[in-house]
Nucleic acid binder design. Sequence first.
DNA 1: GTGGTCTAGACCACC
DNA 2: GTGGTCTAGACCACG
Lengths: 134, 134, 134, 134
Amino acid sequence: MFTVDPTSSVPIYQQLVEQVKEGVLKGTLTPGDRLPSVRELATMITINPNTIQKAYQELERQNVIETIRGRGTYVARNYKAKPDEERLALVAEMFRRSVVEARYAGLSSEEIITLVKSILVSYGGRESVKDVKD
Amino acid sequence: MFTVDPTSSVPIYQQLVEQVKEGVLKGTLTPGDRLPSVRELATMITINPNTIQKAYQELERQNVIETIRGRGTYVARNYKAKPDEERLALVAEMFRRSVVEARYAGLSSEEIITLVKSILVSYGGRESVKDVKD
Amino acid sequence: MFTVDPTSSVPIYQQLVEQVKEGVLKGTLTPGDRLPSVRELATMITINPNTIQKAYQELERQNVIETIRGRGTYVARNYKAKPDEERLALVAEMFRRSVVEARYAGLSSEEIITLVKSILVSYGGRESVKDVKD
Amino acid sequence: MFTVDPTSSVPIYQQLVEQVKEGVLKGTLTPGDRLPSVRELATMITINPNTIQKAYQELERQNVIETIRGRGTYVARNYKAKPDEERLALVAEMFRRSVVEARYAGLSSEEIITLVKSILVSYGGRESVKDVKD
DNA sequence: GTGGTCTAGACCACC
DNA sequence: GTGGTCTAGACCACG
């Protein structure tokens, strides 16, 4: 958990954001869990504390985690998806791009569907983020 | 065709790359078609020619288009998907991220599958990029 | 009475300060009322006693409460508003910021006035804190 | 325009955010206007560029400004208030606190209403942020 | 101890 | 030239 590739073109703080969100979906992180403190994680993965901070702030802004003053940061207990029209468009856009690339990599429609289904399964088959709370 | 959003966080040259690839899949661009010259396109959409140039170079690198010196640039006639393992991993990664975001936007597994299928349909029933050549 | 959100970005001690002041305005707390002791309140709402202490100190500094050594802390009987220019400027500043946010949330002038009036009503018809003493 | 008080308890980047938003409401900043570049502003007001950057990013997140890659940042042309229920609650909360402080500063209901009205007038009497576009 | 802010200075991608 | 990311190191308020 919490490994990072500094050579990647995707920013380190982003990688962290994604890992936390993915962890929650996978179940490795459960609502209420405490995340390592900024400084702890910084030394754990030898990344500058400011970078960790940026990741945590972004996660908090997205209501994925919440910080309790003086005590630390925790996986949010009651994440509520607010499916903006805008947000749905953004998700659709991500899939659209993925499909284009998949096609150019030679995947058939069937293979693409299979791939997506396998990803869904790897995230535990929960039917929405809400279900994570149960 | 060829509209660009300078406000977007995705680089302009990449937006162009995606639009060309998407056009091919959709059928609005067919192998053998001639693309506008760098300067033409630059004035058409009022974008720095260097940016267009970069997009075309990237497309050529991906074997999506080919330029014939002095004659212009054309949609490649014999695109061949080379599904290296690396590339497939990248595609899987894109879908993985899309799924995470979809979940956090509140979409169910079923809704996600439906979304992907609808995108596939919008790109015609072709079963792979190869079929575009026919 | 005296509930606190450790998740909020506003410091806990300040939340307490505000609640006491609001309670006085609303009439749930009347001048002369005894407040729970630091330790009592600390265990009631499971908050660090130091935090309670800080809140009480701040309230005393603002002449909202007064502590009688060995007897406890009480809502002040003779609060006197000292409207220094500085203080008025600060209040104006708070309203200014509120108005900016209200505008950006899409509220019209009329809606803003209505909102403020409804808040005033919720604090009873008293025309100033002085009247609370009556 | 763009003056900052480094001794204030409100963070510098926040002060900047507020000033820009206020400027738009006041009309000193019009949609489409270009803001000084991060480095420009940094030297103008002798603040670290990172701090300016943070302010700009926050403003962009709030859809108040938009950045055009390689060209600079501009006041957003089509700000659209999305009045979340949550957001309205936050605004109400701000007013609630302001009213409490106003009362404790000795202001009467009438004086408070007058103050709010005067602020509204100072923001040009436009009926919503949308109207700024005209 | 926790997170939050700020500075200084560096490197990078994009246009 | 623009904004975006990262590091190093410092200081502060809060609990």
